[in-house]
Design a protein around this nucleic acid. Structure first.
Lengths: 343, 343
DNA sequence: GTGAAAGCGCTAACAA
DNA sequence: TTGTTAGCGCTTTCAC
């Protein structure tokens, strides 16, 4: 059972394949009646000409890059995509976004597809759940397929554009300490994301640089979605023994923080009087929430733009370029969900 | 100035191209020293083997579909993408998302690329700014390239999965009328979206079925983003002559509605006592906003899933399938941003 | 282990 | 207006 090819169509229509090709490509040299006949045979046989074969001979210069993200429904990646797209479009590149949904198999499959389809390069937010698998990245390197990582992956020399998450969290904790907070906890992100790991690490480091004492039960495993923040919030603060106000929560990201705020509202716990909250990412909704969210502003769009810039440089360079590493700094944005502890 | 090919590598390395091919594909039959030599030449020449050519001979069955949306940073499309992805992944398809940013040229370019790359089919949210251009859709039909539209496009017979927007808005207006509202206006969407047009049409129709009298100045052209709702809200309600409370606003979508709420809060206008607000789409944030948004719930994920289902059916069918049209119904979700007019 | 040669499905001259 | 022919850049036998 073979796929129908141009030959099948040609034979059936009683013309040469060159004529069929001319029809496919809308060449004006074909007689109307022949065209009609060929078209109807194409239809009848449900013939789908193979793009790969067509572009082998043609010199159809296509400019396209991939953006491999980890989660579709995370505003972080939306902003990132916007940044990538802005730079890419300025340089006439089309962006194809695909999500691994934090599954390594998917990541591998997608990179393979990008290569197979001759997408010119890709930006990757790598999945890192414990065991780091990098065979597919090595394959990309072997094939000289340009790519930029959005997180450092141990064991591979590659272009990386990332955010200084450790420092970001440290700023947040220091701010809370300066406000007089003594009970500071962390709603942490999903394990597979090294963002989460770095933020956690920053949280711990911040403690070591403050008068506070770190202990593991200050870390509340949460997740990355609104409902994660909401549910964990209801769960944690629903327990009387955890209601030792005032306290402060540093959240993995803004969406979680907003979920947590909603949880606290449901529990009639005041923000920020009882609980101060700090998010992470500064998504558009953060500043418009009520109360407006104090958060760490990450230059996400900039991150995307820089990644696209490096990627496209690599794509267009004749020779292999030196690996580039870029770390963007984050900034604490103080709004309404944090306040000083009353003496 | 030609691209380097496998022949260049072979020649330079003093081996046949079959050997280079074996190296590229990680065949274990190659002697280690040869492999090393070939690899280093590949590196030196920055050789990127062409996926198109590789897959011409190989039978690499790839399952991939495109999703061509109109705006990257619109939660509507995020939910849609989630729905598409869920169905697609169940059937082992990878989804590539690309956005036209409401520009017809982009839409055309992207469809062309999808075909060129042998993506197996695509879902399209068509750009419709006044002059409807459908040449590229006709091309897809000619090439028997499977696609599903997310809106009816006049002039083309194609699969369509859409939302009954007209009815949705009518439900909203009727609800407000029943609450005793007399001053009902519409913050309308961008002109290019036929969603916007349909919602407007529904708004008008609803008036004709009520005691109210329609007039064009009830339509406030707004847009589709948070800042559109915010700015237009400040603009419109900032004017004393427009402050004839109570009144009600039906918004193009939820994001606009949330922006409008923020504007009213800044202006110290009460929601819903002074102004009742109804959104459209029921994005996740809508129910969590403060006050929670009354809105029209559109089964967006379902929309995506259905579109993917029809698309994949068409991809896998041997013969051409009959065109399918599906209209999903919307539902009014009453929350906190609407209330009855006090007698 | 490696190379020669045949082709994957199409396009692009050029002839007819 | 249409057919013939020679590739596009790779993979894949199969012989050496």
């Amino acid at each position: 059972m073979k796929k129908t090819t141009i030959n099948d169509v040609a034979e059936r229509a009683g013309v040469s394949k060159a004529t069929v090709s001319a029809v496919i490509n809308g060449k004006p040299t074909v007689k109307a009646s022949t065209r009609e006949r060929v078209l109807s045979i194409m239809k009848e046989l449900n013939f789908r000409p193979k793009g790969q074969a067509r572009n082998l001979k043609r010199t159809f210069i296509d400019k396209s890059i991939g953006l491999l993200i980890r989660e579709l429904d995370n505003p972080f990646y939306t902003s990132l995509a916007v940044g990538v797209k802005k730079y890419a479009n300025q340089h006439n590149y089309t962006v194809f976004i695909s999500s691994s949904e934090c599954n390594h198999q998917n990541e591998e499959k997608i990179t393979k597809l990008l290569v197979a389809k001759d997408i010119k390069g890709t930006i990757i937010a790598p999945v890192m759940n414990g065991t780091v698998e990098i065979d597919h990245l090595f394959r990309l390197k072997m094939l000289n397929f340009p790519f930029v990582l959005l997180e450092e992956v141990p064991g591979i020399q590659a272009n990386v554009v990332s955010i200084n998450n450790i420092d970001a969290i440290k700023k947040a904790v220091k701010f809370l300490v300066d406000l007089g907070h003594k009970r500071i906890i962390h709603f942490s992100g999903p394990e597979y994301a090294s963002h989460a790991y770095e933020r956690l690490k920053g949280f711990r480091q911040a403690f070591s640089e403050s008068p506070l004492i770190y202990s593991d039960d200050l870390i509340i495993p949460c997740g990355s979605h609104f409902h994660d923040g909401l549910n964990k919030g209801l769960d944690y603060f629903g327990k009387k023994e955890n209601q030792k106000f005032p306290m402060a929560v540093v959240c993995y990201n803004d969406v979680v923080a907003l979920g947590l705020i909603s949880a606290l509202q449901k529990l009639n716990i005041r923000v920020p009087e009882d609980v101060s909250i700090i998010g992470n990412d500064d998504i558009e909704f953060a500043r418009h929430w009520s109360p407006a969210l104090t958060t760490i502003s990450t230059p996400i769009e900039e991150l995307g733009r820089k990644a696209a810039e490096i990627l496209i440089h690599n794509i267009e360079a004749k020779e292999r370029l030196k690996v580039k590493k870029l770390v963007l700094e984050a900034q604490l944005i103080i709004r309404e969900t944090t306040c000083a502890v009353k003496k």
